[in-house]
Design a protein around this nucleic acid. Sequence first.
DNA 1: CCAAAAGTGTTAACGCTACACCCATGT
DNA 2: ACATGGGTGTAGCGTTAACACTTTTGG
Lengths: 228, 228
Amino acid sequence: MKPEQPSMIPPPQHIKVAVDNCIFTVQDGHLHVLLIQVKKKPFVGMWALPGGLVADGEILDDAAARILEEETGVSDVYLEQLYTFGSLDRDPSGRVVSVAYLSLINGAAVTLRPFPKYTAVRWWKYAALPDLVYDHKGIAAYAKKRLAWKLEYTNVAWSLLPPQFTLSDLQQAYEAVLGRDLDKRNFRKKILSLGLLKPVGEKTDRGAHRPPMLYSFTTRKPKIVQVL
Amino acid sequence: MKPEQPSMIPPPQHIKVAVDNCIFTVQDGHLHVLLIQVKKKPFVGMWALPGGLVADGEILDDAAARILEEETGVSDVYLEQLYTFGSLDRDPSGRVVSVAYLSLINGAAVTLRPFPKYTAVRWWKYAALPDLVYDHKGIAAYAKKRLAWKLEYTNVAWSLLPPQFTLSDLQQAYEAVLGRDLDKRNFRKKILSLGLLKPVGEKTDRGAHRPPMLYSFTTRKPKIVQVL
DNA sequence: CCAAAAGTGTTAACGCTACACCCATGT
DNA sequence: ACATGGGTGTAGCGTTAACACTTTTGG
């Protein structure tokens, strides 16, 4: 923050600043993470979280949003800074400090873009991630912990779901992230008592059984609430 | 993270990486923050959180610890990364991304070192901070919120207290940070039921009243526990 | 009529909150 | 003896956790 160093002539700094984005979604009852396959020199063929250097005139949040948009075409989604990783040997090409972000999107609504920079871009089940470059496995683990916390204590679940959804969809998303089963009656009682949801007044056709009610969130702004 | 940019020749980056440290302690029932008074060019005489550039071969945690040690002579204390601030105009001397840290120390045991880099170094009551440079006021506010959360949900309180202390000392620290009064009986019941404390089996002389029992923490390693 | 998911209440255990008095010491 | 902070228990209330059957639809 202060430009001066113990020695009065500050030695030039050779540290680059990057952003890595851990993008989560829930698909068919499982938590998924978006990974890219590296095309360039030292790690050809390995998988990594999408990321990149921060531009000189770019704030950190914008850099994270840009990377998300490059891969998914999605903008205006939930994005939260997680932690900054600064170990010396993370990147063999030089010292890089990386600011990790967490993104949540409704995977059903996204079509991934093949991006020339990478060999491939795809969703992976969190439970079955491949080996990742650098410390990305650790970043993903940290992101998942934070996400679980967020679901229990805030209303962010809206960012994992489409505008309209059933209570079973919502419960399924919770179970996928928390990794445990929830009691149906207690879950519904609690979540409805918080006033976060409003019934849409419609039903859906989901096959050979009683059609479920649809709900939507009353607000899509982040809010601290004890959910579970 | 990945060195490449959309354009194949990555433009050189002109971003510096710094660390700012919000150092808390509790003294005579009030939460205090350590501030330094700036000596150099653009902000002469203003107060700021202690901070400085990260050295090329230095990891972030070490940079934060170094800054703490320079001001207080204290090492081996609780230190936690808070958040990374990256707005464009924080520092008029150029683009600086600052990683904020939170430190907790037992203030009674510390004698501050006058440091040549700064005009002054002293504790300020959190409730009566002066104006601070850049966005430091916001950083301090964020740090205090995090600290309050930490006291409610972990055993970090040990880092604000000496090795031996009374339950009243502990309660006072909680009240100073949380900014509200706690019921004496409920507090004692709860904190003792968690098994975080062990009685030392001694009493102290604290003036004209019944001498209190001394306690110490069973462990001084961070641990998640619902305290309140 | 069968299969499949949706929807719905009650009870018991637990934890939290509120609250007032006696104790040990120094002066 | 009195002033000062240290120390202790209980009852009411709300929240959470456990638990099984009926409903609505499509095939």
